[in-house]
């Protein structure tokens, strides 16, 4: 028997619809422009830990076919709009990530992404906190640096410890098999953060963890006051990773170097090389206004708003019945 019914209740879908309406109202009041950008594009992210879906356009102009990627986030297109003078913008859209399915993941999910011209990551954290209070009616969040988080919960300084010290901590925490073989400090930090820290933080109120290691900068600026960290933050609430934000990297040459570094790592990992997005690089060369941006998982927000502990309970249909 085919189970055709939705995996979310109508009641939850109503909560979801109301939440989306509230988000739109929040940005309308702040005069942030809603935009839509392509979900199918010729380029994709180079991040070695993100796998894109790939498809092919065949039609006028491309009789032989044109490879297109379903976007893992609308970041590149939105930055091109910022470079073109859009001012502050937000988008609510679907994002697609291959290889991700589980309690908190579905390969197709909804994302809220917004950019604030003239904001740095500190100011944007404040606005994310405002949004969470409006949507979830939660209390004021707490703030802790990535470095302090590790010192407080695992007694290790992630910015100055050696690889061997990291391996020792990972072994003590029960990950001996991984620790013995892993020589990438960031992988060990991510293992410890996701397994030992994330379940403990932000249980009562949301927590902002900021100043991630420069080696995990993604598309954030390196801090001018401490080159060991990047101006990047994440938000966690009740064991759920909710949002990731940057004081956005505007330097085109630095962006190009990061694309190259990612692709070198991809080659080492045996993953396909992704052609860097020249539209983005050219746009950055013409000038990205000083801005901060953040992406927030809407499905996870609905999970928190409706007290559901599985993403399938907040999406009408997940990959298992799509």
């Amino acid at each position: 028997m085919t189970h055709w019914q939705p995996s979310a209740t109508v009641e939850t879908l109503e909560i979801r619809a109301k939440l989306l309406a509230n988000i739109r109202q929040f940005f309308a009041e702040r005069k942030v422009l809603e935009v839509e950008t392509p979900q199918l594009a010729q380029h994709s992210v180079t991040d070695p830990h993100l796998a894109s879906f790939r498809t092919e356009y065949v039609g006028p102009g491309h009789a032989q076919g044109l490879s297109l990627y379903l976007q893992t986030s609308p970041e590149f297109s939105m930055k091109r709009l910022l470079c073109a003078g859009s001012g502050c913008i937000y988008q609510i859209c679907k994002a697609y990530r291959n290889e991700e399915s589980g309690r908190y993941h579905n390969p197709e999910f909804s994302m809220l992404e917004w950019y604030r011209v003239g904001f740095d990551h500190q100011q944007l954290m404040q606005e994310v906190a405002d949004l969470l209070q409006v949507i979830l009616h939660c209390k004021l969040p707490t703030y802790l640096s990535y470095q302090q988080t590790f010192i407080q919960y695992l007694g290790i300084d992630p910015l100055s410890c050696s690889l061997d010290e990291l391996k020792d901590v990972a072994s003590q925490q029960g990950f001996r098999d991984i620790a013995q073989q892993e020589n990438n400090p960031d992988t060990l930090l991510q293992l410890l953060f996701s397994h030992c820290i994330e379940p403990q933080i932000g249980q009562e109120v949301p927590i902002f963890v900021f100043d991630f290691p420069a080696t995990q900068a993604a598309l954030a600026r390196i801090s001018p006051s401490d080159c060991r960290v990047a101006e990047r933050f994440e938000v966690y609430f009740k064991g759920i990773e909710l949002a990731n934000g940057f004081h956005e990297l505007a330097d085109a040459d630095e962006q190009q170097r990061r694309f190259q570094q990612d692709n070198q790592r991809r080659q080492q990992m045996g993953l396909p090389v992704i052609t860097p997005d020249n539209y983005l690089l050219e746009a950055l060369r013409s000038g990205l206004p000083d801005c901060a941006g953040v992406a927030l998982g809407i499905d996870r927000l609905v999970m928190l708003a409706s007290s559901n502990n599985n993403i399938s309970n907040v999406q009408a249909f997940t990959i298992h019945s799509a």
Binding site: E99, E100, G102, D186, Q190, S194, A218, E241, N244
Partner: peptide, 26 residues
């Protein structure tokens, strides 16, 4: 269970029963 940060390495956290000793572990 898939444990995957938005930016970073994915992990599979599994609960396992050892079939001879009967022990359950993560």
């Amino acid at each position: 269970e898939l444990v995957k940060p938005g930016k970073g390495q994915a992990f599979n956290r599994v609960r396992i029963r050892k079939l001879i000793s009967g022990k359950v572990l993560e």
